[in-house]
Design a protein around this nucleic acid. Sequence first.
DNA 1: CAAAAGTGTCATTCG
DNA 2: CTCGAATGACACTTT
Length: 528
Amino acid sequence: MSKEEKAELEGSYNVNVPEAVVQVLATPGRLCGGVSMSNHFSGARSHGAPQDTEMDVAWQELMAITELQEFEVSSAGSYETAPYQTMEPMAPMGGYEMAQSHSEAPPVVYGTADPYNGCYPQEAPVRHSVSSHAEAMYGGHPDSQLNQRMHPVSSHSQPSHVAPREQMNMFGTNQGHRRANAGLSQDLRRHMLWTTHGQSSHARPADDLESDSGLSLGSSPPLASPDNPVSGAPGCKSLTYSDGEPDSMGDHARRAHIHYSMDYQSQAHSYLHPGAQPSYFSTQPTLSQPSAASPSMKPDPTSLSNLHMDSGESSRGSSQYNMYAKPQGSISAPASISRDERQAVSLKIPFQMEKIINLPVDDFNELLTQYTLTDTQLALVRDIRRRGKNKVAAQNCRKRKLESIIHLERELHQLQAQREHLAQQRAEFKRSLAFIKCHLTDLYSEVFSHLRDEDGQPYSIDEYALQQTPDAPANSTAAAAATTTTKVVLHWAEIGGLGVVVAHVVVVISSAAAAAATPAASTSTTVT
DNA sequence: CAAAAGTGTCATTCG
DNA sequence: CTCGAATGACACTTT
């Protein structure tokens, strides 16, 4: 037994009865001795915004030159007024190829640097359509190789349906719009990807803008419609998507109305990744390989239908899309822009998502005052901020929850270990107690053997018994009892560790007349 | 295909 | 009253 255990036992078994009074009562055969133990177990941007960098300006200039040289977008009408259209390079999306049909400009390699990082270059020439940009950017971009690595199938075996999944991802694997925006399934997005600007025969009211269930949606008027001055910028003409109004529109109707512009995507990218840090799309395989893309640029129904087949997104409002199977074998799904980002793009919110979400209230309000925003834009910005913060909060909350679970589990293990330890102690104490009882019995017998009555005869163990009582040396209890009872006062104490009990026995036998106890016998016994 | 895990969003509460 | 954080609940996606 360790010292610690001994000490613990000592403390626990410390008999605080240094002077126990043992009375020999006329109660034959009864041992009333008790051991008192106290158990004390311890244990227990923005386009035009001041933030535009030199790089952006340089890039815009470069792009302007490029436009003059190569890009002649006929139907630029829809893009010319779109302030954020120069963002495409940020998004190496397969969808670019589609848009490229507009301007069949030869690929221009700009190198690997991403000049668009950091802002929404609204000043950039509106004409240079996404397609041209995309081509220019990705025609020889190293990412294309990455793309091939990541999606060999899309670049080789499936020219027309290049990485549908990737495209889908470009629009965001963000599940946010799944619920309220259930209407827009990934197949639709993909459909949009394959849709060229001129194809949009129907301009559907802003999609996501209303998709948001709850708060802001109700207050947000239909937007993003070509007819809508607010958000229906020309650039958005073909950008409508069906995230919102989940069930109000039939599947065919929805598809007919959904025309997602590539510019949109790129813009969204810019929103999402204003900074120079790698964006979701930075690693996104570029689907710009002309060979693979060109065939699909034709909005043939087959392609569209095939696209739809890639959709596996199921949502409350678009369960009918589930008929389309998800493509198999796609590599890891790259991140995509969120609904909020798309909405921000569609409404031309002049701020970066990051700022909207992370700026302090005062700075945020100040930022709002710097721009003239419509109520719709304002509502969207506030929603974006709210959702963005809540998203972070939810992440933190879950993180804490996990940490809490881990902590509780750890604590549980500790408590279990402690319980085991205590159980062991209990067993030891039991053994010790049994041991002590045993020796007490021996002591009892020994004491008894030393007792003699008036006649010098030993007391009969059958007729007398020793009884341990609280200390009462020569006081009222002992004395009073002494008047009528022959008594024995037993002093004993534990002075050592376990296994060593020294009992100092003082036997006092008084006569009926004795007023005070008189030691008649004294014995000291050491028991080991 | 089902279940579990992961994620975003909303509603609500609280400071 | 507003704001932000926290969190339960829900729907949806991903694994």
